[in-house]
Design a protein around this nucleic acid. Sequence first.
DNA 1: GCGACTTTGTGATCGGATGCACAAGCGGCT
DNA 2: AGCCGCTTGTGCATCCGATCACAAAGTCGC
Lengths: 201, 201
Amino acid sequence: MARLPLYYRALVEVAEQAVGTVSSEQLASLAGVNAAKVRKDLSYLGSYGTRGVGYDVDYLMREITQELGLTQDWPVLIVGLGNLGRALANYRGFGARGFRIVALVDADPEKVGQCIGEMTVETLGDLPAIVAERRVAIAVIATPAHAAQEVADRLVEAGVRSILNFAPAVVSVPEGVSIRKVDLATELQILAFYQQHREHV
Amino acid sequence: MARLPLYYRALVEVAEQAVGTVSSEQLASLAGVNAAKVRKDLSYLGSYGTRGVGYDVDYLMREITQELGLTQDWPVLIVGLGNLGRALANYRGFGARGFRIVALVDADPEKVGQCIGEMTVETLGDLPAIVAERRVAIAVIATPAHAAQEVADRLVEAGVRSILNFAPAVVSVPEGVSIRKVDLATELQILAFYQQHREHV
DNA sequence: GCGACTTTGTGATCGGATGCACAAGCGGCT
DNA sequence: AGCCGCTTGTGCATCCGATCACAAAGTCGC
């Protein structure tokens, strides 16, 4: 389920307070969801809580850590180093959870060779070699919209099977490849939409 | 519905090709959804297509533009100018759709007074005045997680009723305020989760 | 050791979104 | 003018996730 990361974060908060067990109600309020949902999700991955007490914080954290693959190291590749790509390259929030940025790639010859943080921008043509050598599992597309589909195709061809797309474009990938989209302008538009309709009423 | 922005983008693409009408099938494939869904969504907002022909591109675009509030100017405020906040401040993708960044705010005295792009960072204390004077409708939270809830509270108090939260934290707001969350680390974790489960099978 | 209380796990229900399939309507061709 | 093919709009069945509610199970106090 896509809610596990939420629970994980909630658990980290709980663990900081050195509490031994946590109830589904507490977790639910920390994660901002319904308590029954928490229980069902946790039961789904076979984790056992103790009735009358709750869930053992340490044990549950280990379970979720394992389930999410946080024990592994996930090499991440970023394609496209405009404003957004550069920000992602410098973003510290990733490292903490096992995501390590191992390569930056751009099609623009002007950008190739530039240093960003501690990394050097490489050329799009080297994708296959980079992916293979550094065992890239996840790629982030931060290119302009018109380049997104082609980049995705090349990524898939190079062997990447998980893509996070920030470009405002619909990108289709073959079966067996996961893609998720984060679209900033759309998010703002949805907010604007609701706000406008609130004002109208 | 939250799919209108998708349709809008698809329509922009169609309009560039100087085509007069578009069928629900075409729109569906461009937006990556089912054709019946497109028709239902469009009928929901009362837009009329012509049977046997399709939808008039210009007319439909005007309708959606209006419905989404793209005719309006939406002043946007960004709180928190770490890596992510700075990138958002420089991001060009917003302006095109009526979103105009009118203020940058940070709690850190070191950052107050800095120039980013063509704007100067202001202090968190001035929030109420900034929001009121510049008629801020939408605020973006790009602070660290631990500050997110307090910032949200102050935003709501200052009169903001739409918030886009990039901080990896659950933020609760009173009734009548919309909040949407974009969590980069979570997105990566979801991808990692699926990938791990694919490998296990 | 027993009863009351707490909390989990899950069967049942509900609602909303999704997709199918088809009738109604429109344009174009003869 | 009439027919044919195409596309919309929508009723209906389906499905999936969310929520409720309750029994099972365990703890704590006496």
